[in-house]
Amino acid sequence: MDDVKIGEILRPGSTYEQRAREETVRARFWKTARKAAKSIPFLDEVIAGYYCALDPATPTWVRGTLLAALAYFVMPFDIIPDFIVGLGFTDDAAVLMAALNAIRNHVTPAHREAAKKAIADLDKDN
């Protein structure tokens, strides 16, 4: 996946687009995270990014970037559909990694702690 395509995906978008993405992410994130758990080795950072994106104290542009990446992650049909075993989450991982690298300094210890607890809960469910 090239940098131009990732840059297009990660555009924060308008306030309206951010609200729509947030609704989509809230509705689908945990189901997708469970499916991707074995495919994305940095899922802990993705979950921390989820909490960062939903934190009202996070700057708007950071939230927008994260919501764009997370919306791409939760959509089952994208460049490489998620249901393709072994490949489905590779494009999602590239987009998520780019977003997380761009906003790394905004993910707080509180976001990481919430992610740690959520992963423990995911492990209990399996």
Results as ranks from 00 to 15, higher is better:
Asp123Ile: 04
Thr15Tyr: 12
Gly49Cys: 02
Ala99Glu: 07
Val107Ala: 00
Val4Arg: 14
Ile9Glu: 05
Ala33Val: 08
Leu10Gln: 06
Thr60Ile: 06
Ile40Leu: 12
Ala71Asp: 15
Asn101Gln: 15
Leu43Pro: 09
Pro81Trp: 04
Ala37Glu: 13
Met97Gly: 07
Lys38Ile: 05
Thr108Tyr: 05
Lys124Gly: 03
Ala71Cys: 05
Pro41Thr: 07
Arg19Ile: 05
Tyr51Val: 02
Lys38Gly: 10
Val85Pro: 10
Ala36Thr: 14
Tyr16Arg: 13
Phe29Thr: 04
Glu113Arg: 12
Asp123Cys: 06
Asn126Tyr: 14
Ile80Thr: 15
Leu70Lys: 00
Glu113Thr: 11
Ile119Met: 11
Tyr16Ala: 06
Val62Lys: 01
Glu23Ile: 09
Pro41Asn: 13
Arg63His: 05
Ala33Met: 04
Arg104Lys: 12
Gln18Phe: 02
Thr60Asp: 09
Phe73Arg: 00
Arg34Gln: 07
Glu8Phe: 08
Tyr16Val: 13
Ile47Ala: 04
Ala27Cys: 09
Leu43Ser: 04
Asp55Ser: 06
Arg19His: 14
Ala99Met: 09
Ala98Phe: 06
Met97Glu: 10
Lys31Ala: 15
Glu113Ala: 11
Ile47Ser: 03
Thr15Asn: 15
Asp91Asn: 14
Lys5Gln: 11
Ala94Met: 07
Ser14Glu: 04
Asn105Gln: 13
Leu87Tyr: 15
Gly88Ala: 05
Gln18Arg: 12
Pro109His: 00
Arg28Ala: 15
Asp55His: 05
Phe89Pro: 06
Ala118His: 15
Lys35Cys: 06
Ala99Gln: 08
Asn101Thr: 13
Ala69Tyr: 02
Ile40Met: 08
Ala115Ile: 00
Gly88Gln: 05
Leu96Met: 07
Ile9Pro: 14
Phe83Gln: 04
Ala48Pro: 01
Leu122Gln: 09
Ala68Pro: 11
Phe42Thr: 08
Ile40Cys: 12
Ala110Glu: 11
Lys35Met: 10
Thr60Leu: 15
Val107Thr: 12
Thr15Ala: 15
Arg112Ile: 01
Tyr72Ala: 01
